[in-house]
Amino acid sequence: MARITFIQAIFDGLIEEMERDPLTFVLGLDVTRGTFGRAAGFFERFGPERILDMPLSEAGFVGAAVGAAMAGTRPICEVQFASFFYCAFDQLCNQAAKLRYMSGGQVRLPITFRTRCGAVGGAAAQHSETVYPQLLSVPGLKLVMPSGPADAKGLLKSAIRDDNPVVVFEHLALGGAREEVPEGEHLVPLGKAAVKREGKDATVIAIGAMVPKAIALAQRLEAEGISLEVIDPRTLIPLDEEAILASVAKTNRVVIADEAHLHGSAASDIGCMIAEKGFDYLDAPIKRATAIDAPVPFSPPLEKAVIPGEAAIERALREILG
């Protein structure tokens, strides 16, 4: 197994799937130039017929991906930053998400949307948002949030093979993260959480870039004799409720760490699910470590004040560890 970066892992997955299915193609802004990393020879390998640079027309090309999928292809549509989805919300939420259902199941929509999200330092409010909370209440989209290179490859490959519209959120802060990634046929199923670290005193359910923060915290607290379990849902829709509830049943305490803004966050949704289905397991209130309800500001100390770090997870934990 090679130790490679998140971006390399994504491109490995992309190349393998494009070689596997000639009806896959990539469309998006600057995709032939690869503004956020590009595997050597990617464009040369597939050429201009399968890697299509789009104009700055998010509504236009997100909608074109929908139409192309309806007409039998398997588009991989790149939306550079998740906030740019707002320019294409009709095409994503009214069209991609609903057309199969509204047509009584007549059509397949095998579209993978790749997008980048999250705060990475000084990108300000229109390039730092998570955006997936807005999509949690749009039935018809699967939402994927890898936290490291191996999952990124395995989840992306599963997303591309899925016959439903799937949005893969790649957190910008994870782009350079390295780990060992299985070569070739490495598939991570959608809807299956991962236990990233086993523990017994409390569970941290961590989403995306919150996973490495939760693991770092767990390592630090180990010296104090506190044992944290870290669960990564990996996909928000479908959500592996069973794995989450099993961990809460074991530790009886839970913090949900999510970079989204507090209101309407995935943390809120998961917390509510635990309250409804796992109330009897709990020895303490459910806690959320999220961004505060302010747009992500530009200046580094302000950004740090809004985005939850290791300290925010720790604060929430201390309140319930007793």
Binding site: F61, A64, A65, V66, G67, A71, G72, T73, Q95
Partner: peptide, 13 residues
């Protein structure tokens, strides 16, 4: 845009 994508698929395929 959906019609446009449908035409794109016809061109690609």
């Amino acid at each position: 845009p959906i019609a446009t994508g449908s035409a794109l698929a016809a061109k690609l395929a």
